[in-house]
Measured scan of single mutants.
Amino acid sequence: NKFNKEMRNAYWEILLLPNLNEQQKRAFIRSLYDDPSQSANLLAEAKKLNDAQA
């Protein structure tokens, strides 16, 4: 399933972002589970926040 693969990839990438705190990571991951079809958008948002907090 395409969404499962995308979601899994986004999950691990979000977990490994160094500048997000645990609460932020949990919020993004919760959103991933709520709507896996938004994986790419959520990952992009997480990366943007990660860069902003660098």
Rank of each mutant, 00 (worst) to 15 (best):
D34R: 08
P36R: 04
N1L: 02
Y33G: 02
L20A: 01
K2D: 15
Q38G: 05
Y33D: 01
Q23F: 07
L17R: 02
A40M: 11
W12S: 04
Y11K: 06
R30A: 07
Y11W: 07
N19L: 08
K25A: 04
Q53H: 13
W12K: 15
Y11A: 07
L15M: 06
L16V: 06
L42N: 05
F3N: 15
N50E: 05
N1K: 06
R26K: 05
L32E: 00
L49Q: 13
I14L: 06
D51Q: 14
Y33I: 09
N4A: 03
R26N: 05
N19V: 06
N1S: 02
F28I: 06
A54L: 04
N41M: 09
S39N: 05
A46M: 01
A46S: 10
E6M: 03
A27M: 08
R30W: 11
L16I: 04
D34V: 06
D51W: 11
P18E: 07
K5F: 01
P36Y: 03
A52K: 10
A46E: 00
R30E: 06
R30L: 08
D35Q: 13
E45L: 09
N50P: 01
Q53P: 07
Q38D: 08
N41R: 05
N19K: 13
L43F: 03
N41E: 05
A52G: 07
K47V: 07
Y33T: 04
E6F: 01
W12H: 14
K47F: 07
N9P: 01
L43P: 02
S31G: 12
K25M: 03
K48A: 14
A40V: 12
L43V: 07
Q38F: 10
Q38K: 12
S39A: 12
L42S: 04
L17T: 06
E45H: 04
R30G: 07
K47E: 03
L43K: 12
E6K: 02
E45A: 10
A10Y: 01
D51H: 15
L17W: 04
D34H: 14
F3S: 15
P36W: 03
L49R: 06
S31D: 13
S39Y: 15
K5T: 01
Q24K: 06
Q23H: 09
P36Q: 04
N1P: 15
Y11M: 14
N19S: 10
N21P: 06
F28M: 13
R8D: 04
N50K: 01
K25V: 07
K5Y: 01
L32S: 01
K5N: 02
Q53E: 08
A44F: 14
K48G: 07
R8M: 15
D51G: 11
A40S: 13
S39P: 13
I14N: 00
I29H: 06
A10W: 01
K47N: 06
A52W: 10
Y11V: 11
A44N: 12
F28K: 04
A44E: 06
A10D: 01
L20R: 00
K2L: 06
L32R: 00
E22V: 13
E6L: 03
N4T: 09
N41V: 13
L42H: 14
L15N: 07
L42F: 09
E6A: 04
A10P: 00
L42M: 08
P36F: 05
D51Y: 09
P18F: 03
S39L: 14
N41S: 09
E22G: 06
K47S: 05
N1W: 00
K5P: 04
Q24V: 13
L32N: 01
R26M: 06
Y33H: 10
A44W: 08
A27V: 14
N21V: 10
L49N: 09
K47M: 04
E22R: 07
Q24M: 08
N4D: 15
P18Y: 04
S39M: 14
N19A: 12
Y11P: 00
R8Q: 15
R26T: 05
S37P: 05
N50I: 03
A27Y: 08
Q24Y: 05
D35T: 11
R26L: 04
F3E: 15
E22H: 14
K2S: 15
S31H: 09
L42R: 08
L17A: 13
N19W: 14
E22I: 10
L42E: 03
D35N: 10
N19H: 14
A46W: 01
N9T: 07
A44R: 04
D35F: 06
D35I: 08
S37M: 13
N21I: 09
A46D: 00
I14E: 00
A40R: 09
A27H: 09
K48R: 12
K2N: 15
E13F: 11
Q38P: 02
M7G: 01
M7T: 08
A54Y: 04
L17I: 03
E6W: 00
E45F: 05
F28W: 07
W12F: 12
Q23L: 05
R26P: 02
A10G: 02
P18M: 05
L49W: 12
N41K: 13
I29T: 08
D51L: 07
P36E: 02
N1M: 01
N50Y: 03
D34F: 09
N1Q: 04
E6T: 03
A10S: 11
N41I: 14
K5S: 01
K48T: 08
A52S: 08
A27P: 03
Y11R: 06
F28E: 00
D35E: 05
K47I: 06
L17N: 03
A46L: 01
K48Y: 10
A46Y: 02
A27I: 10
K2R: 10
N4W: 15
L49D: 06
I29D: 00
